[in-house]
Design a protein around this nucleic acid. Sequence first.
DNA 1: CTGAAAGCGCTTACAG
DNA 2: CTGAAAGCGCTTACAG
Lengths: 349, 349
Amino acid sequence: MASIKDVAVEAGLSVATVSRALNGHPSVSPAARRRVEAAVETLGYRPNAVARSLRTDRTRTLGLVISDVMNPYFTELARSVEEEARALGYSVVIGNADERPDLQDHHVTTLLDRRIDGLLVSPTDGGSPGMLAAARAGTPMVFVDRWIPGVDVPVVRSDGRAAVRDLVAHLHGLGHRRLAIIAGPAATTTGRERVDAFREALGAYGLALPGTYIGQGDFQAESGRRATERFLDLDEPPEVVFAADNLMALGALDAVRARGLRVPEDIALAAFDDIPWFVHTDPPVTAIAQPTRDLGRAAVRALVERIAGRAGESVTLPARLVVRRSCGKPGKPGNSSIESPSPVRRSTP
Amino acid sequence: MASIKDVAVEAGLSVATVSRALNGHPSVSPAARRRVEAAVETLGYRPNAVARSLRTDRTRTLGLVISDVMNPYFTELARSVEEEARALGYSVVIGNADERPDLQDHHVTTLLDRRIDGLLVSPTDGGSPGMLAAARAGTPMVFVDRWIPGVDVPVVRSDGRAAVRDLVAHLHGLGHRRLAIIAGPAATTTGRERVDAFREALGAYGLALPGTYIGQGDFQAESGRRATERFLDLDEPPEVVFAADNLMALGALDAVRARGLRVPEDIALAAFDDIPWFVHTDPPVTAIAQPTRDLGRAAVRALVERIAGRAGESVTLPARLVVRRSCGKPGKPGNSSIESPSPVRRSTP
DNA sequence: CTGAAAGCGCTTACAG
DNA sequence: CTGAAAGCGCTTACAG
C-alpha cells in the first residue's frame, strides 16, 4: 500500500509538502497541489489513519457501549448515534455489553486502548470498575439512556414519568386496579426509575404496589416470561402487567400465550419502549415511546462538546404514551396520544 | 496517559525489555518481569494500540459492513460475528450501509483507512466501486449472506432453496394456487435467488409466477407495503404473499391491515428470515429461518483464515421452514418442521 | 512556499 | 537476558 513517501517521490516534492497539500494547508502552491493530486490519483494513495492518529493524538472515533444490541431500542439508538457522528466527521465503534459488567469493561478497555476520542455509555448494572475508572480519569464521556448517580458525566436520557402517569390513568380508566410491573435490574437507573414512577402514579389513585406485584427482570425476554409466570401463579394475579422494556414484554406475551390465556381479556399488558412490531402483535401493544433518534443525536453532540473541552450539556426529553389494544378497549385516556393508524378491524368482534 | 517509556523509567529497565515483558516474550528474567508488572500496576499503564498497530501493521480489528442494522436478521448476524471475533482476539467495527452503495463505500473506505485486518461484507446493490476495488486489491475479505458473482472472495451464506420448496409444498397443500412474491433488489444475490427458488418450486406444481405477482421491493418495510397494495389492487389478487425478508413482511402486514383484511383468511403471508416477533404477530408468521449464528461464526473463521494467508473456505448452510398460522390451518407440510411451542390456543376457533 | 528533522508509542532485529 | 537503535507513516514547528 502506497505511503506518503511514495506520493512525495511521484510528485517530486517532500513528504512535508505532500502532507500539507493533503490536509488543505493554505501555504501550498497551486502547482504543488496539482502534482500531489495527480500522484495520489496514479498511486491510489489513501492516508494511513493509524499513523495520523498516533501523531495527532486524535482518532476521530467515538465509542458506544450499550447493554444489548439485540434490543430494538438500542439498535435504533446506535443507528442515530452513528448518523449524527458521521455528520460531524466521526466514526463510531459499538461495544455490546449484553447486560454483563465484565463485557462492558472489556469493551471500555478495548476502546480506550484504541484511543477513541470519546465514549458514549449506557451503563450496565451500576457501572463496572473500568468504566468508572475511565470516567474518573477524565475520558470525554456521556451517559445515554441510563446513568450512574454521583458520577460527573453529562446524561442524555428521556423522562418517562409523565408517560407512566398517563399509562396508569389509562389503565385506571379501563377499570384495572391490580397492576404489576416487571422491573429492570435495580442497579440500573432505568430499572429503578420506571418502578418508582409506576408506584408514584398508582399512589395518586390510592393504589398500592405490593412486593408480589413487582417482578424482578433483567431486561431480557426470558426474565419477562418467568416474572409473568409467577404473577399468574398468585392467588390473586394482577389484572395488568407493565413490562419495563420491550423484550420483557415479549417474554410476558410468551408466558401468557403458553397458558392459553388471552391479552387483554385475561390479563392486560403494556411496555416501556415502543417498537415497530408492537403494531402487529396479537394484540397490538400499548407502549411508552422514547424519542430515540433525538436521544442519539443529543448524546453525540454533547460528547463532541466534551471532546472539544467544553461542558456538554445534559438533556432530558419526554417519553409519550401510545395507546393500542393490549390493555382493553381504549376509554378516554387523559392527555395521552391515541394511535389509530388505519381502519383496524378486530378479528374477534 | 502513561507510555511505555514511563513504565521503563519506573521499572528501571529499557523500553525494549518492558515491551518484551508485556508481550510475553520468553527471554525476560523473572525479576524484570515482576518489576514491569509492578510499574504497570502503579502507573495504570495500558499499551497504546494505535502505536502498536502502526508498528506491527496489524490492528486485530475486523470490519463488518452490513446493509441494514435495523433489520433483526443483520443485528443477530452482527452479534454472532462480534462474539466469534472476540473469542479469536479480534474487535469488530460495524458499518451500516442502509442499502445505499455510497454509504457502503464510505464505510469500506473508512475501515480500510483505519487498517482493519479484514473485511466482512454483505454487499448492497451488486457492490460499490470502493468495495470492488478493495476486493481486487487483495484485502482479506469474505462475503456473508449476499455475494457478488465473479469476485474471488469466499462466501458464507445459507441456501434457502429446499426451504422454499417446503414452503411452496405447504402452500400448495393448503389449496393456494395464486402465489406472489415481494422480491428484494435484483442487484443483490438474495434478491434474485429467492425469486428464482420460488419460481422453480412453483414450476414443480405446474404453477407460473406471472410478472404481476412479482413485487419489486428493497428489503425495507415501506416497499413491502407498496408491493402488497399493488397486489391487492389487481383484478385477481394473489392468495399468498411471500416476502423476501422480514421487514417487507412487516410492511405487507401493515398494508393488509390498513385495508381491513385478515391474514390468513383474506390473504396468506410468509416471510424469508425468522425473527422472535413472528411468534407474536397476528397471526404468527410462517417463515424461513436461516442459521444466523452459525453463519456469523463461519464467516469470521473464514476471514481469519484469509488474514493468516490461507484459503478460507466458502460455506453454505441450509435454511429451514417454520410453519405457523399465517398461511392457513397447517396441513401436512412435507418434510418441513412444524412449530408448536406450547399449548397455543387460537383465539378464533 | 518548501524541506529537513523531530517525534508520536510502540516492536524487533542486532549486538553484547 | 538486556539495551541501543531503527523504523512504522504520518504532522508540524523551525529555518530558509
